[in-house]
Design a protein around this nucleic acid. Sequence first.
DNA 1: GCAATTTAGTAAACATGTTAATGATTAAAG
DNA 2: CTTTAATCATTAACATGTTTACTAAATTGC
Lengths: 146, 146
Amino acid sequence: MTIQSHTKSTSRSLPIALLRARETVMAPIRDMLQGIQLTEQKWRILRVLDELGEVEQSTIANEACLLLPSLTRILRTMEAEGQITRRQDSRDKRRTMVKITEEGRRILKENLETSLAISNNIEAQMGREKLDHLLDLLEELQAVKV
Amino acid sequence: MTIQSHTKSTSRSLPIALLRARETVMAPIRDMLQGIQLTEQKWRILRVLDELGEVEQSTIANEACLLLPSLTRILRTMEAEGQITRRQDSRDKRRTMVKITEEGRRILKENLETSLAISNNIEAQMGREKLDHLLDLLEELQAVKV
DNA sequence: GCAATTTAGTAAACATGTTAATGATTAAAG
DNA sequence: CTTTAATCATTAACATGTTTACTAAATTGC
């Protein structure tokens, strides 16, 4: 029995449940990234750029769930480290177009195997069906108007 | 069609899907919290303390998904603002026991209604059954050994 | 055309995330 | 016992999260 008087149990609170689940999933990924001097955010950015090609920064921010001020700083160091390139868009000079470099792709490629092993491990324990169902529900939740 | 050659689509990547879903759910909660000078983390801490009573900091860290160094700083300000109290455990002097104050409970109480309205809104759009199913799957995912 | 508004990105300030190192205490091993 | 190892919490340093304010460029409305 708990002491609380009014609020919902935190384990049935959607925000907290999402956070805890994510911490579980991220633990081994963080281990992988620490070995290659990459943060979780930089990994997400590389994934998004690999998926979408050359895009503007606002798009990256949306897709990788980062705010623009954070992205500005992170891209600055990623450009310095040769993982991405940036150029001003000629038509709309407000826009900065970002693209992954060969070096960036190399990093993704080198860690693909580990990354797959991690998701396979989770899939083995949860089952493919449940995992797909979960992903469907998560996509549906994202689409909710708040 | 996408450009990527090898990795999974980010929308079917569990870590990114969890993050995006959470951003959706948190948006209105952040709006609520901004009105009462409370961060998302402080809100989680109050929820956990209300649920568990007097506990040590490591427990809070686990339950609220915070690292101890962050917690140390946050509790310092929460203590100064009168939302929690801290005392050294007499049996094990390494431990610090933390408890929510009346002021802390008052804050929870005052925002309970808004908080409920937010979850009800999500429930209305997703349906109670789907939401329960999602919470079940998230709990199951948390239990996976990584 | 032009003033007002909107949009893309950056800068600054402060809170939190994250890792590594440290101090203090307790538990374990011998 | 006592040395060693493990645990709880803090500090420091740097990266990122978050809000506000700002610049520059494009769009809208008139």
